[in-house]
């Protein structure tokens, strides 16, 4: 009846996933806020190191490769590439742990 392995409709066979196919507007707003927060953390670390006249590979690589939130296209903010999907895109909220991982780049052309 209770517990992690209880019989629920998604578990008792058949494909029934209750994740909506698109994100809501507040979900998107929070996603943007999280992206900006990561940008802020990286810039603070970068400035602190620059004051000491040093830098580090992880920060340099991030700055070279990753776009900041304002530079990203909406399709990259809210969707990710998936080769199994129609039109090769699915909502980023389908990515496991999506609020705690950085997923900004997608294959070029998709």
């Amino acid at each position: 009846m209770f517990g992690p392995f209880r019989l629920t409709s998604p578990l008792s066979g058949g494909l029934l996933w209750k994740i909506p196919w698109r994100m809501s507007r507040p979900q998107k707003a929070r996603q943007r806020a999280r992206l900006r927060h990561v940008d802020k953390v990286v810039s603070i670390v970068d400035q602190a190191l620059a004051k000491k006249g040093t830098t580090t590979a992880a920060v340099e690589r991030w700055k070279a490769e990753m776009p900041v939130e304002q530079e990203m296209l909406p399709r990259d903010k809210y969707t990710i590439f998936d080769r199994k999907e129609k039109k090769y895109r699915k909502g980023i909220h389908k990515l496991p742990k999506w609020t705690r991982v950085s997923q900004r780049l997608n294959p070029p052309g998709y």
Binding site: V41, K52, T56
Partner: peptide
């Protein structure tokens, strides 16, 4: 203390933490 070591560690967990100097 601000150092490259600490910066590298922060970069590993940047989505989870808040950082200030």
């Amino acid at each position: 203390p601000v150092s490259q070591d600490a910066a590298g560690q922060i970069m590993k967990v940047k989505e989870l933490v808040d950082v200030a100097e």
